[in-house]
Design a protein around this nucleic acid. Structure first.
Length: 507
RNA sequence: GGCCCGUUCGUCUAGGGGUUAGGACAUCAGAUUUUCAUUCUGGUAACAGGGGUUCGAUUCCCCUACGGGCUACCA
């Protein structure tokens, strides 16, 4: 088995592209074949610098690696279509000679005119086809000496496929079954452009043949042009090695109608690409899941379950498990909404399953970005304290902010509710107890002394706890308070309690 | 408009001629946590509509509606 992922370097890789690459990868790893990365840069006007590197990096972050490609080399290179330019012409010419294609000399204006005339006479989608080509300037309508003269003179031309008439094309799609299309619906597609480059259709078929691709797994947007590709394989006499086609359902917007687009990420304030993309023209950065603190395992797990399922109730999959479980037979036919909320859940699950040790370094980095520092031992105690409260590793910053920054204000509504009654008295007394205690400071001591003071004033500890939390952290909620205080240290806690005592409302 | 593909809880989906139509996310409620979060328990919630075929259809067929894709010298 040989598969390929063949993106155009026209910009950052869309999530749908990542999923297509993933499905190719899962399938080929299970089968033990090769996966090639081919860059389809036949449209020079749409080339975006950096896109190719971005695609490789994004997929690599996801754990999708290739066996051959622009960055890996291989026996079937080059893997960039622009570098294969010279060879496509001969294939196009081969088709002209065998009568499957022809030269066309029509200018853009002439094509526009033709389309407008058709529209004026009520034809909704004008086509360059068996009917209209006789009225256009091409090697089928022009006298052969004129064709020769034009070619001789170096006049611009394209090579078009001569769509056969009255045929039925049968496409056997692995996911959708048999798809039948009448050639009368199809037009004479351009195969070879006037700039000397092939179009997608020619390059794709030629390269898949030359690279010995056995399975084509691509997005549903290619289904309508697959009959043309089948016809091309036939015209070349390559039907014996024609790959098996699988057209994947599309990824749809999280809400509303239409397919997923970058604007959906922007609109919902969530990342869109796997990794951060910098627009080479404007310098604008679009954050990626990687930068936002998501685990690649979570992202891949989430993506794998969009349009595919294992047939049982399992949801958590490592890449290896996905490879084992994956099958094209269980890929859906219908589009799937790209629901970010499920991704959050996956990330949370992956976070839970992480060992504390493996989180020390990422968390330390987050601290450093904020200008905070902590010893290893403190970090290792702090992480489990707040881990359950996080969805992303990057949430660590907001979870521990109050640990590193003294509170500056106290929420008035909580103050009003929790700092009244016995609280001021208890607070003052507690400060004294904490200071004078000879015990080695720790969570147990902080809690025991607090309970003692509360008991002396015949108040339940629970009724005072939130007030204490506010006093010491400046927040109304947070992780286990006494653990937190134990870690924070006696003097820091006392200092904060003093500050809170000074801020007590006058009565 | 034409052609092609599709349609099960809000979302991702399982299922399949006779089922209490299952799971997960989200959501709601309760318990636990004397906070929040976590965890646990429970609940609300779906076969697009209409015709066939059939003893019986959500499942098969047709039509309609709706959604999506394509309709470039873009991929």
């Amino acid at each position: 088995m040989r598969v390929r992922f063949a993106p155009s370097p026209t910009g950052p890789l869309h999530p749908g592209g990542v999923r297509t690459a993933l499905f190719n990868y899962l399938l080929v790893r299970k089968a033990g074949g090769q996966m090639v990365l081919r860059i389809e840069d036949t449209d020079q006007t749409r080339f975006v610098p950096g896109a190719e590197e971005f695609i490789i990096e994004s997929l690599s972050w996801c754990g999708i690696e290739f066996d051959e490609g622009v960055h890996k080399g291989g026996a079937f290179g080059p893997y960039r279509q622009s570098e294969r330019k010279a060879m496509y012409r001969q294939y196009a010419l081969q088709l002209v000679e065998s009568g499957h294609a022809y030269y066309a000399f029509d200018t853009e204006e002439e094509l526009d005119t033709m389309r407008e005339q058709f529209k004026a006479s009520g034809v909704a989608s004008p086509q360059y086809n068996a009917i209209s080509r006789v009225r256009m300037k091409n090697s089928l309508s022009l006298p052969s000496d004129e064709v020769a003269r034009r070619l001789e003179a170096g006049e611009a031309y394209v090579i078009r496929f001569k769509m056969p008439r009255g045929r039925e094309v049968r496409v056997q799609d692995r996911i959708r079954g048999l798809v039948v299309v009448q050639t009368a619906q199809l037009d004479d597609k351009v195969l070879f452009k006037s700039d000397g480059m092939p179009t997608y259709h020619l390059a794709n078929v030629v390269d898949d043949r030359l690279m010995e691709i056995t399975h084509v797994i691509r997005g549903e947007e290619w289904l309508p042009s697959t009959p043309l590709h089948v016809l091309l394989y036939e015209a070349f006499g390559w039907q014996d090695t024609m790959p098996e086609f699988s057209h994947l359902p599309l990824l749809l917007k999280p809400d509303g109608d239409g397919k997923l687009s970058k604007r959906d990420g922007d609109r919902l304030g969530l990342p869109f690409y796997a990794t951060e993309w910098t627009n080479p023209e404007t310098g604008d950065k679009t954050p990626g899941y990687r930068e936002a603190g998501y685990f690649p395992e979570a992202y891949v797990n989430f993506l794998a379950l969009l349009g595919w399922n294992p047939g049982d109730n399992r949801e958590m999959f490592t890449m290896d498990e996905l490879i084992q479980a994956f099958s094209l037979d269980r890929v859906n036919k219908h589009g799937a909404r790209y629901d970010f909320t499920k991704l959050q859940w996956f990330n949370q699950q992956y976070l839970r399953h992480r060992s504390v040790d493996s989180l020390v370094e990422p968390c330390r980095k987050i601290l450093m970005d904020k200008g905070w520092e902590a010893e290893d031992a403190v970090l290792k105690a702090l992480i489990p304290l707040v881990m359950d409260r996080m969805v992303l590793v990057s949430d660590f910053a907001k979870e521990v902010e109050s640990f590193f920054e003294d509170p500056t204000t106290y929420d008035e509504s909580v103050v009003a509710k929790k700092w009244g009654g016995a609280f001021p008295t208890v607070l003052h007394e507690l400060i004294g107890c904490y200071e004078s205690s000879e015990e080695v400071w720790g969570a147990a001591v902080a809690e025991a002394l607090f309970k003692e003071v509360a008991a002396r004033h015949h108040v339940t500890p629970g009724s005072l706890l939130q007030g204490l939390r506010l006093a010491v952290t400046g927040q109304a909620s947070g992780p286990a308070l006494f653990e937190w205080m134990g870690l924070r240290g006696r003097s820091a806690c006392v200092a904060r309690l003093r500050r809170a005592a000074a801020a007590l409302p006058a009565n």
